[in-house]
Nucleic acid binder design. Sequence first.
DNA 1: TTGAAAGCGCTAACAT
DNA 2: ATGTTAGCGCTTTCAA
Lengths: 344, 344
Amino acid sequence: MPPKKKGNGQKPTIRTVSEHAGVSVATVSRVLNAPLSVKEERRNRVLESMKFLNYSPDPVARALCTHRVRVAAIAVPNIVNPCLAEVIRGVIETLEHKGFDVLIFDSNQSIERERMFIEVLHNKIIDGVIIAAISTKELNYSELAAKTSVVVIDHPEAGHEVDLLYADDRGGMQRLVDHLISLGHRKIGFLSGTFNSMGGVRRTESFKLAMQSAGLETSPEDIVECEWNLYGGAKGITAFLSRKTFPTAFISASDLIAIGALGAAYSMGFRIPRDFSITGFDHAPWSEFSIPPLTTLEYPNYRIGKEAAECLLRRVDSPQAPRIVKKLDLPVMIRKSTGPCSLG
Amino acid sequence: MPPKKKGNGQKPTIRTVSEHAGVSVATVSRVLNAPLSVKEERRNRVLESMKFLNYSPDPVARALCTHRVRVAAIAVPNIVNPCLAEVIRGVIETLEHKGFDVLIFDSNQSIERERMFIEVLHNKIIDGVIIAAISTKELNYSELAAKTSVVVIDHPEAGHEVDLLYADDRGGMQRLVDHLISLGHRKIGFLSGTFNSMGGVRRTESFKLAMQSAGLETSPEDIVECEWNLYGGAKGITAFLSRKTFPTAFISASDLIAIGALGAAYSMGFRIPRDFSITGFDHAPWSEFSIPPLTTLEYPNYRIGKEAAECLLRRVDSPQAPRIVKKLDLPVMIRKSTGPCSLG
DNA sequence: TTGAAAGCGCTAACAT
DNA sequence: ATGTTAGCGCTTTCAA
């Protein structure tokens, strides 16, 4: 195959443009990157040639020089979870605004895959990565952080090499417990997420602490482990309700778990909040339309994504900037799934 | 130690490795791309040098030569919709298996943004793109298809330049109508998606045709336009139920709409399927846990993503392969939200 | 303000 | 089987 001959069929390059406009490639490059440094007359000529040839610069070649690709990655445990989807949307919309694209990684709850992501991310064409709500605690981000910018969502102990953004689970849990107590509940059950995930462990711990600081007892059977989805919630509440006695209120580790619990309880003939109360935790977009509408926390999923993205952008621009660690507040959002205790 | 110019601190390149191993860069490149073409002894030496130097090839430089980046894009109207999320998951898992990453674009239902995507995709570092369930009919893919591989999901008339994959909405709708008729229903309402989206228009058309071929009348007031989410369904069913008379059964254009309708109907005091029947359409992962569990179609979201990805892979490998057009079957999945007609 | 030319890190055609 | 070298398309000194 004879090397390159210009003008025929091929995608135009910066050289094609420079020849068509009768200037050097450097000048074309300048009108691309620093237009004002080129005299107006020539600049216009170049611009016209570009338009005429339907030219657009090759992002790969550009990246080879600049070492910037304007691509970020986000890794999540479950893209089907609408809470996480809202985080992703927050990330996408913020980054897109700055001309960044986003690569998506979904571990589908597999710790194995999470580990693989960290490994594989090293060789990806990206400027930075956001790691959200990952299950395992043992992930080591430091090596990755040495190569690229990383911000970690919802993993407060991720290490000092990365920017951190997390919601105040502990405080939110306390508000939920206090809300239930103010309604007269004393015996409160917890529908936890799986214990092999950090979220499950952390929220369970928060629950225990919140109960403790409210002066309430928690015994092991007050906590039931559930998968992080509707099915898990349905199964979890069924376990509780098939005992001879059970709590008058339940806090769920996620809205999805709560909504599943609501459905199962309903089909077992219970009515909520008449028979008992249930809360969610992370504010799924559906929770407003569950039966009945779910009391939960004002978990700012979209905003979390947005702030994480801003954080990443900042770090990409100035890798030496001081580290960010931000905790977000979690007010309670009272709806209809919680009500006065039916006992005493 | 590599006693060349600057062997320190810098990220190792193929040249660093070649010097360390005492071979040419070509040999190093070969052990990367065609290991068997290098004699075992040298190959091992190179491999060891790579390990020792902690070398990994720069994907950008590689892409510059090969014109392949192993990145695909997927564009969807709403990432928060779990049906679409499952499509995305199908795409991701299939492509990841082949070493491809996926860029995500979410239009958040904005036709404006959909248009922008098509525009902007031209200059992205990608090998191909999957466009799913996009709202507007007027998108012109041909220019894009000239530059990159594109497969379009759920847009049967997207043009002959692209591979097509779509569900048999018309057939599925017929099965839903027939199911309802077999339960004694004669007056059926339709909770449509928005008419400014192709999906809304197409499913409404399918509904009318299905009714017609079942010998049933459809009048304009049997069709109510809803936003594609729970709120839309709640609003839509409320519009129906506040009339003096209304249908004995409803088909929704999506599961989300149906679940919203269920919630609203419930809170207005209706019981389903005692008072009337409701169906969904696109098999959201939640629909099994709605109250009551939703009758819907076996819409194979994950598989759609998977097949679209396979289709894209195939086209990326051989751009000249014959065009694929595939229609997927939609069996009905009967659960508890439909029951016998309560009237005569 | 502009142009010439040296890379960026890798692949592949051509030689040996 | 292995080495040499010419690019891939762009940015960026350095001179002019």
